[in-house]
C-alpha cells in the first residue's frame, strides 16, 4: 500500500539535497571528464513528485517497492559521440564514484532482440575525492547515471515520443517499422565507430590525422568545443608552409610535446580561461602546433606565420608560452 502523503513529505525534504547533489555531480563531471579527452553532453534532473509516485505505483504492481528503493530520484545523463567512448566513461565513473550497480542494457539483450542499449549506473559520491570531501551529508544518496551515444539518445527520445514502450496496441506493421529503425540506429553506431577509428589512421591524410590527435587535447585543457573548419584551414596552411621534414617531426612529436609540457599547458589554460574571447586560438587545437613550432623552429615558423596570419596574435601566444631563462 502506498501512502502518497508520506512520499510527498519525504520528497519535500529530500528534493533540495538531490538538487544540490545534481549541481555538484554535473559540475564535477563536466570539468573532469575532459581529462579523458572527450567532450560529452551532460545534463541532470531531479524527478518530479508525480513521476516518483507513478513509478512506485507501477513497480508495486510487480513487486514490493517503496520510495527508498527508487534510485533515480536524481538522474545524470552523459551523451557521447561514439560507442567506444562509453568504455572510457565507465572507467571514469569507477575512478570517481562509488558504483553500486551497473546495468549494461546491450549485454542483457537476447541476440534476437532489438532495444535501448545504454549503460545505467547506480552511484554515490566518494568523499575521498577532493571536490566531494565537504559534502559528507550527501554521500549516502544514490543517484543514477545514464551513459548513451547520440544515436541511442535519438532512439530513446523518438521511441518515447512514439510511446511504443507503453505497450500500447501498436499495429504490427508499425511496430515492425519501429524495430527496423532501431536496427538502423544500432548499425549507425557501429559504422560511425569503424569510420572514426579508420580515419584516425589514414596514412595519406596527415591534416585530418593531426586534427584528430589534437581535438581531445583541446577538450582536455580548454574544456570547450572548437571550430573544425577554422582548424582545418589553419592546419592546412601551417603544414603547407613548414619544410617537409619539419612537418613530419611535428606529426611524430606533437603528442609527446604536449605530454611533457602538460602542467604548463594546464596552467596557461586555467589562467586565461576568462579571456578566451580575446585570444580565440586558445580554444582551437592548432594552439598546440603553434607552441610546438615556436619551440622547435621559431624563426622559420614566425617568418611564414606573418605571411599568412596576424603577427600580433602570434606575439600574444608567444607571451603566454613565456621564455626559459
Amino acid at each position: 500500500m502506498m501512502d502518497i502523503k508520506v512520499i510527498a513529505e519525504a520528497w519535500k525534504g529530500d528534493q533540495p539535497k538531490y538538487e544540490e547533489l545534481g549541481q555538484l555531480v554535473n559540475k564535477f563531471i563536466r570539468s573532469t571528464i575532459t581529462e579523458c579527452e572527450i567532450l560529452p553532453e551532460i545534463t541532470f534532473r531531479t524527478k518530479e513528485l508525480y513521476s516518483i509516485v507513478k513509478k512506485i505505483k507501477k513497480k508495486l504492481r510487480e513487486k514490493e517497492y517503496s520510495y527508498t528503493d527508487l534510485n533515480d530520484k536524481l538522474g545524470i545523463r552523459i551523451i557521447c559521440t561514439f560507442q567506444e567512448e562509453m568504455e572510457v566513461i565507465e572507467k571514469f565513473l569507477y575512478k570517481y564514484f562509488e558504483i553500486k550497480k551497473v546495468e549494461r542494457k546491450r549485454e542483457t539483450l537476447d541476440i534476437h532482440t532489438l532495444d535501448y542499449t545504454s549503460n545505467h549506473y547506480d552511484a554515490c559520491i566518494k568523499t575521498s575525492i577532493k571536490q566531494f570531501t565537504k559534502y559528507s551529508t550527501l554521500k549516502n544518496l544514490v543517484f543514477e547515471i545514464q551513459v548513451r551515444t547520440l544515436n541511442q539518445h535519438a532512439w530513446a527520445n523518438t521511441a518515447h515520443a512514439l510511446s511504443y514502450k507503453q505497450e500500447a496496441n501498436i499495429p504490427p506493421n508499425l511496430e515492425r517499422k519501429v524495430y527496423r529503425l532501431l536496427s538502423l540506429y544500432e548499425i549507425a553506431d557501429d559504422e560511425f565507430s569503424v569510420v572514426n577509428s579508420s580515419l584516425k589512421q589514414l596514412p595519406d591524410n596527415e591534416i585530418y590525422v593531426l586534427l584528430r590527435k589534437l581535438e581531445g587535447k583541446i577538450y582536455k585543457y580548454a574544456q570547450v568545443d572548437f571550430d573544425r573548419e577554422l582548424s582545418l584551414n589553419v592546419f592546412r596552411t601551417i603544414l603547407g608552409f613548414l619544410e617537409p621534414q619539419n612537418a613530419k617531426l611535428l606529426s611524430l612529436e606533437i603528442e609527446n610535446f604536449i605530454k611533457i609540457n602538460s602542467d604548463k599547458i594546464q596552467q596557461i589554460f586555467a589562467e586565461n580561461e576568462g579571456r578566451f574571447y580575446e585570444i580565440p586560438l586558445l580554444t582551437q587545437p592548432e594552439i598546440f602546433i603553434i607552441w610546438y613550432c615556436l619551440n622547435k623552429f621559431p624563426y622559420s615558423f614566425k617568418d611564414k606565420w606573418e605571411d599568412n596570419f596576424d603577427a600580433d596574435e602570434l606575439e600574444q601566444i608567444e607571451i603566454l608560452w613565456g621564455k626559459q631563462i
Binding site: 604548463k264 596552467q267 596557461i268 603566454l320 608560452w321 613565456g322 621564455k323 626559459q324 631563462i325
Partner: peptide, 9 residues
C-alpha cells in the same frame, strides 16, 4: 633550474 616566465603569478 631555468626560470620559466610563463609560470609567473
Amino acid at each position: 633550474k631555468k626560470i620559466d616566465t610563463s609560470t609567473i603569478q
